[in-house]
Computed example of a mutant assay.
Amino acid sequence: MVSSRDGRAANSSPSSVQPSHRRVVRSMRVRSPQAVQCPARPPWCRCWTRCAPGRTKPYVTIGEDVVTPGPAVDVESEEIVTTLHVWSEHAGLSEAKVIMGQIKDALHNRPLTVAGFRPVRLLFLHSRAFTQPDGMIRHGVIQFQARIERL
C-alpha cells in the first residue's frame, strides 16, 4: 500500500484525506447558495477559488485559510479562519457591503456538517470594504472562524 504525503493510506476515501479546513470551506460553499440571493441582480453566490480576468461582477472568491491548533487538550481540535472576497464594479462600496451582509446572515452562527468532526458553527470575525488601486473595482473581505473537534 502506498501512503500519501501526510502518512495516510493512498486508497483511503477522499473525505478522509481532505484537510479539515477544506472540508469546512466545502460545507460553507454548500450552505451559502441555498441561503443567499442578491435581490438586485441574478444570484451572485457562485463562489470561485480564484479571480479570472473578464468574469462578470459581482462575485465571491474563497480566499485564504489559517489553521491553528484548537484550545482543547483532551481532543484533537483546530481553529480555522477562512476568508471570502467580494468583487464588485458598482459605484461606491454599497454593493460589496450588501453582499457581505448577506454572506454574514447566511453563515454566522449557523451549523455546518463536516465529515469526521463534531457539528461546526461558523462565527463571523470581521469584514472590510475598500476600493482597489485602479479606482474601479470594489473589494470586500469577510472572515469567519470555525472551531472543529475530531469525532
Rank of each mutant, 00 (worst) to 15 (best):
S4Y: 08
G7E: 03
A10H: 00
A10Q: 04
S12W: 07
S13W: 08
S13V: 12
S15L: 03
S15G: 05
V17E: 03
Q18G: 10
R22D: 13
R23C: 09
V24A: 06
V25N: 03
R29V: 10
V30P: 01
S32L: 15
S32A: 15
Q34L: 15
A35C: 04
Q37M: 02
R46A: 14
C47F: 15
R50P: 00
A52Y: 08
G54F: 04
R55W: 09
R55A: 06
P58Q: 10
T61Y: 05
T61S: 11
I62P: 04
G63L: 01
G63D: 07
V67T: 07
V67N: 02
P69C: 09
P71R: 05
A72F: 07
D74P: 06
E76L: 13
I80V: 11
V81S: 08
T83V: 12
L84T: 02
H85P: 01
W87G: 06
A91Y: 03
A91M: 10
E95R: 01
A96I: 03
K97Q: 15
Q102E: 14
I103Q: 14
I103K: 02
K104C: 13
A106H: 07
H108G: 10
P111A: 14
L112D: 03
L112V: 11
V114K: 01
R118V: 04
P119Y: 04
R121I: 08
L123A: 13
S127H: 00
A129T: 11
F130W: 07
G135T: 04
I137N: 01
H139W: 11
V141P: 02
I142E: 03
Q143R: 14
F144D: 03
R147C: 15
R150W: 04
